[in-house]
Write a protein that binds this DNA or RNA. Structure first.
Length: 759
DNA sequence: TAGTTTTAAGTTTTT
DNA sequence: CTTAAAACTA
């Protein structure tokens, strides 16, 4: 007993606030460790504390620790919090999977047949490359192939792999994939999937490289493990030798990236794949008040395929969540604005801050309504993710020029800007330049030298056009000082003088912005857009200025340019650090909320067809439930669920049905506002009666005519007849769509859910 | 051939 | 309602 007490007292003070399971997870060493951590159970705290513990108590070199997360935001937060416990954690490598892959590839590019200055193509680049390879193919098919290629790489499948038919059974896919890979290799760039796949291939074919990296990283920590895909699993296997300490953290109920190739099996079968694994469960929730946790668990408990766990709420009682039925999406936005405004401006006690609030939605398109409403009410907000800034034409043009500087073989970038503004270089000339560059005698695909060599044989107009273009590029190149292996210093963001001002001319500030501005001006991108459209042109100049400002944080060297472009490829959040800490409401997709928490959360658009989506059934429907679980468990103190009766789709008003998920909640846990009938005008609260759902298979035989039900394929309907058979009752159902069908009420694979509601 | 106007099509979710 | 592709004119 004394020994036990002594050992507990011997814990360093920073372990004191941890509960026994958390502490066990932190001090664990040796075998592989799987931490099954429910939402809000303090897993980030465990990982960050573990990093500090390993450095302090176990004498582990911080440089030999690798921590992988899923989003850049999570990586930043983890780094910050680890550093707060111990400064030396600053030397630990904390990155996203993709960012780590890029880092690895830059250092080992030669093994993959790449130059070190490769660029990272995004999904749009993949699509346009494919459309150049296959002409006259409808865009919808191109997109399909692009998606399949990305998926194939998620599953670590090459074009030769016999299992490729899992992705797409069509026989031409193999050829398309192979052709794409060949062209991408000629260009010398990589796509997102390559950032994981290529490192695995290098590690497998070059044992000496694998040895070096296993030597370097003695500890590997993985967050959000339930969302890793096959390729990422393979990467982990290659990075971890027998000496490596591997610790993964995850929650099968929060797996929401199956569409991206995530394999829940990775977490379900972790113990089999890494023999001797120890498992620690963190099931105490410190984040949410009990009724919020109950609501979230209630929905996700309808899933069949889950490990199952019981999250215990550690917090005391709190306010009932609110279930609000609104007439349409405008009312929904107004409702959000109303409750936020009153909590911040008019609350007598417990005044909230804007930043306490988050508005969650299923699709990015839904953010628009809230933005206009908030603008009108002067509610400050920020929209997380889907920043279309880098999608803008003028920004893409500028980036193409930069990309060409990095990699003169970049065919896509070349095509984009060579004749913009019009320089008399038509399709014919571009074609000749491309074939010239493809000539193996020439400097391996360099489009710029090819253009230069070909220029004399072209028309006078094309010749001078090419000369002007090359000169513009050269002016950008001149601004880059050779960087003699300086340590990469990323300057801290400062306030720039030219903030928020409409400029007639672009200002070159410092660092890399000099290069960006030189390119834009000498290539005439600014003039092109100004002369093109006077009104939009000014906004476009502002955007280009913003791009230049972002570039000013990087040194004007080739390495700085590389870093800038990589940052843009991997992290599109253009968050101005000055505004980061401003008091604002967060508008965010459900997917993007993973790992975040807010005091007050509004989940919006909880309607059939939107959340869950119309076509989701089976495993997809279960993933939508997990998404609901993730969203609801972000809330600490207050949770609001909104469902509308009508919504504008493509400009036309459409009636909506309440989400199936609402029927999976216990209505007595909620304060209800309005009612879910079409045309019902919400006036008083509490008219809705939502009984707790009986899933299929329960309470055999007490179906009645008139019962409402939901079928995963057919939607909502009513029972119009019941017959008995030896396998139980057979229901004849009249669906709202007009269809009538018969179902065995308790078939094993039945997708029927009974719902009760009275108005 | 470049730049415009007309018509059709389309919304998951992300590194 | 917005955006992309197709069709059309100068």
């Amino acid at each position: 007993m004394n020994n036990l007490l002594n050992s507990i007292n011997a814990y360093p003070p920073y372990l004191e606030p941890l509960n026994p399971e958390q502490r066990e997870a932190v001090v664990h060493t040796g075998n592989p460790l799987l931490i099954l951590a429910g939402a809000g159970s303090g897993k980030t705290r465990v990982i960050t504390t573990k990093i500090a513990y390993l450095i302090r108590e176990k004498g582990v070199d911080p440089r030999s620790i690798l921590a992988v997360t899923f989003t850049n935001k999570a990586a930043q937060e983890m780094a910050e919090r680890a550093r707060l416990i111990d400064d030396r954690a600053a030397y630990t490598m904390i990155r996203t999977f993709h960012s780590f892959g890029a880092w690895f590839l830059r250092r080992n590019s030669a093994f993959a047949g790449l130059g070190s200055g490769f660029m990272i193509y995004d999904d749009n680049d993949t699509i346009s490359l494919l459309s150049h390879i296959m002409e006259n193919i409808p865009k919808i098919d191109i997109k399909h192939f692009a998606r399949c290629i990305a998926r194939a790489k998620d599953y670590f499948l090459t074009p030769e792999d016999p299992q490729l038919s899992i992705i797409d059974y069509r026989k031409e896919f193999r050829g398309v994939y192979a052709g794409y890979e060949e062209r991408l290799c000629q260009i010398g760039n990589v796509d997102f999937g390559d950032l994981i796949k290529k490192p695995v291939e290098i590690l497998r074919t070059h044992p000496e490289v694998a040895r070096r990296f296993r030597d370097r990283f003695r500890v590997v920590l993985v967050d959000e493990y339930q969302d890793t895909n096959i390729a990422q699993f393979e990467l982990l296997k290659e990075l971890c030798g027998p000496e490596t300490y591997l610790c993964v953290v995850g929650d099968d109920d929060q797996s929401i990236y199956r569409f991206r190739g995530a394999e829940v099996r990775n977490i379900l079968e972790f113990s089999d794949k890494f023999p001797g694994t120890d498992v620690i469960r963190l099931e105490r929730n410190y984040r949410s008040i009990p009724p919020i946790l109950k609501a979230a668990s209630s929905v996700v408990s309808h899933n069949q395929r889950r490990l199952g766990k019981t999250l215990v709420a550690e917090r005391g009682p709190g306010k009932k969540p609110v279930l609000a039925f609104l007439l349409n999406q405008d009312e929904e936005a107004a409702f959000c604005g109303e409750i936020i405004e009153s909590s911040v401006r008019y609350a007598k006690r417990k005044k909230a801050a804007y930043s306490d609030w988050a508005v969650l939605y299923r699709t990015n398109a839904q953010s628009l309504g809230f933005e206009t409403e908030f603008l009108r009410r002067n509610i400050p907000y920020r929209v997380v993710g889907s920043l279309k800034f880098y999608e803008r034409e003028e920004v893409k043009d500028a980036l193409a020029l930069l990309a060409l500087l990095m990699n003169p073989r970049d065919e896509l970038a070349f095509r984009r800007v060579v004749n913009k503004p019009s320089r008399g270089i038509g399709a014919a000339a571009v074609g000749r330049i491309l074939t010239e560059a493809a000539d193996p005698k020439e400097e391996e695909g360099n489009l710029l030298t090819a253009a230069q060599q070909l220029a004399p044989s072209l028309s006078a107009k094309a010749r001078s056009g090419i000369e002007a273009f090359l000169k513009a590029l050269a002016s950008g190149a001149e601004t880059l000082a050779d960087s003699p292996s300086q340590p990469r210093q990323r300057e801290k963001p400062r306030k720039t003088a030219q903030e928020n001002r409409s400029q007639e001319q672009l200002n070159a500030g410092e660092g890399l912005s000099v290069c960006v501005v030189a390119l834009i001006q000498n290539a005439g991108i600014d003039e092109y857009h100004l002369s093109h459209d006077e009104i939009a042109g000014n906004q476009r100049i502002n955007n280009l200025q913003e791009l230049a400002n972002a570039a000013s944080l990087y040194p004007a060297t080739p390495a700085g340019l590389e870093e800038f472009l990589e940052h843009i490829a991997l992290d599109r959040s253009l968050e101005d650090t000055n505004r980061l800490n401003m008091d604002r409401v967060t508008l965010i997709t459900l997917h993007n909320t993973k790992g975040l928490e807010f005091r007050r959360v509004i989940m919006t658009g909880i309607e059939q067809g939107i959340f869950p989506r119309f076509d989701s059934k089976g495993e997809e429907l279960e993933e939508e439930r997990r998404l609901f679980y993730v969203g609801a468990t972000r809330a600490m103190d207050e949770l609001y669920l909104c469902s509308t009766a009508a919504r504008r789709v493509y400009g036309k008003s459409q009636t909506m049905q309440p989400s199936l998920f609402l029927y999976e909640l216990d209505k007595t846990d909620f304060q209800i506002i309005g009612a879910p009938a079409y045309g019902y005008i919400p006036q008083k609260s509490g008219t809705l009666n939502l009984d707790h759902t009986q899933g299929s298979g329960s309470k055999r035989g007490d179906w009645e005519i008139g019962d409402r039900l939901f079928h995963e394929e057919q939607g909502y309907g009513s029972v119009i007849n019941i017959q008995n058979s030896e396998n139980g009752p057979v229901l004849k159902v009249h669906f709202d769509s007009g269809k009538e069908m018969r179902f065995l009420a308790f078939h094993q694979n039945s997708y029927i859910t009974r719902i009760h509601h009275e108005l």
